[in-house]
Design a protein around this nucleic acid. Sequence first.
DNA 1: TTGTCATATCATGATATTATGATATGTTTT
DNA 2: AAAACATATCATAATATCATGATATGACAA
Lengths: 143, 143
Amino acid sequence: MTTFKYVVCNIIIYNICDTMKNNYLENESDDICEVFDVHDDAVARVKEQMLSEEEYSDLSEFFKIFGNPTRLKIISLLSAEDLCVCDISEALGLNQTTVSNQLRVLRANNIVKYQKEGKMARYSLTDEHIEMIFKVGLEHILE
Amino acid sequence: MTTFKYVVCNIIIYNICDTMKNNYLENESDDICEVFDVHDDAVARVKEQMLSEEEYSDLSEFFKIFGNPTRLKIISLLSAEDLCVCDISEALGLNQTTVSNQLRVLRANNIVKYQKEGKMARYSLTDEHIEMIFKVGLEHILE
DNA sequence: TTGTCATATCATGATATTATGATATGTTTT
DNA sequence: AAAACATATCATAATATCATGATATGACAA
């Protein structure tokens, strides 16, 4: 299982590094912005590689989820092990409604999944991207 | 330069994979939540590896930045090449105030840095974490 | 030193998000 | 079927965020 995680992680990384490599453009333009004459070449180049409006919107919706301490706590709990709603409320000292609502948000954004086991719901993270983003963010703020 | 990016990227990855490996805990508990008797063992285990309140708060502030399409667009432009404020407004079709305000937010959160060149300000991303998080998020939503 | 330009800051109304109380749903136990 | 329990949904008041107009700052050119 640990090995599996490793492999998945490395596949993701490979893709990222590759994209980073391909995207790298050497460029130096020294002209100055003027009212009807911005750095046209740079602007054109840079616009070309932009995503669609919808992709930016989806992506921001996705990241918005990480922008709340409660959800981040839930994510970090679930990165250690799968838990049910009442365990999460207990661990965080938050009432069940709050946790359940945030889990709904996390579910709607494909960040956690759950498995019903009788009256219980066992929640877990959907994939490695989630833990990954969490860790990279943590590395950044700890610098 | 490309090689440098590759190396930095791989160092980051190594750390992440390592943490992921160490954090992985094999655990199966099949008891059921009851009013005064949650999965105490799981709750205890999971609480132990939590971050501090401040870390969650900082981390969520950091991620909040990615949760807005305009800022995401700016980040994606700057991941291609360094740009000045007016180029960014031009490329995004947004007024200068909006871009400048968002750049202030990005600066305050250590996501972009800038270099004054006369009356111009040339903005760039602070480090590889930023591009990395962007890419992993994109991979996730494109799945 | 006056004008122009690039950028920054401030204030604000519109909109979105938060945690939570009240309540509903659905499952197990008796 | 009634009670107990785990979870989900709804409504809401408090708070935060967004884009932008108005305005300030600071650099360069005439």
